[in-house]
Design a protein around this nucleic acid. Structure first.
Lengths: 142, 142
DNA sequence: GACTTGTTTGATAATCATTCCTAACTACTC
DNA sequence: GAGTAGTTAGGAATGATTATCAAACAAGTC
């Protein structure tokens, strides 16, 4: 996907960011990516169009895009490993802002339907569900 | 939670691991943790009972526990940031082994029920769902 | 179109979580 | 209780991400 300078400027404007060339190219690279690229991969793509670009610029702008709500983070997670000692069947409620995790039990997923919609071969014998939202504390801060 | 030496030995045995003292203390620390502790926090707890323990031992054993299926990882994630350029409403199917993420659309979550079971104050106005399983490739390898 | 101000960039150093390495130790077998 | 394979402690190494800071830039003002 390519945008005109005006289109991108409007998009950036709407989210309170200056419309720089780098930002436009990075945004295009992310949206055009077939899957979910890592910063390094995006860097490689952007470098083809702006050879002088710095990896730090990729990181800065990805972060900015996520903060401004233009893009979202896949599996938002605490920056460190967490393990689950709760051996009962349960799901998780994850706060996208502070990354806290609460356990939740209950039967709110239609697994039959899910299985039908999942691509063939995806093994859902022990599905775990994670629901993202805002915990009370972060929600209050807004 | 404290286990007798015999109880832990049996548990370890069942999962094909040797029953070392360190492992027992680490396991107890994780299961006793009220929330989801980080490796550093578990290290601090274990250190109170085994002052000479090394942080690497915590990491090694947490990884082992997860591999052997004794504990599970909270929000399994790729070791690097991923952003989502898909601006349509959709959910994710995440492979717990290779960490790949596929997009999935569809209506398999009962949000009313979920809202009822979520603790008060948790903001679910833009819920994202992530379903963990095994992608076809990893599922085939077993 | 030049001026100004606050923002962004690029290059590199710094930081943080995690893994690797190796010699010394343990659990378990016989 | 000696042998052996697997485990540990400790520190060095790695890899992802963030901080720093001087130079370049965006965008509003004249």
């Amino acid at each position: 996907m390519h945008l005109s300078h005006e289109q991108f400027r409007e998009l950036a404007w709407k989210h309170g960011m200056a419309a720089t060339h780098q930002r436009k190219i990075i945004f295009e690279a992310v949206v055009a990516a077939p899957g979910h690229y890592s910063p390094e991969q995006i860097y490689a793509v952007v470098k083809r169009r702006i050879p002088s670009v710095s990896l730090a610029t990729i990181y800065n702008n990805l972060r900015l895009f996520v903060e401004k709500g233009v893009l979202r983070e896949v599996t938002p997670h605490a920056s460190t490993l967490r393990v689950d000692g709760n051996l009962e069947s349960h799901h998780h409620l994850v706060c996208t802002r502070c990354k806290s995790v609460q356990d939740i039990t209950g039967d709110f997923v239609d697994f039959k339907r899910l299985a039908r919609q999942a691509p063939g071969g995806f093994d859902l014998t022990h599905p775990l569900i994670e629901v993202f939202g805002l915990c009370p504390r972060c929600s209050a801060k807004t």
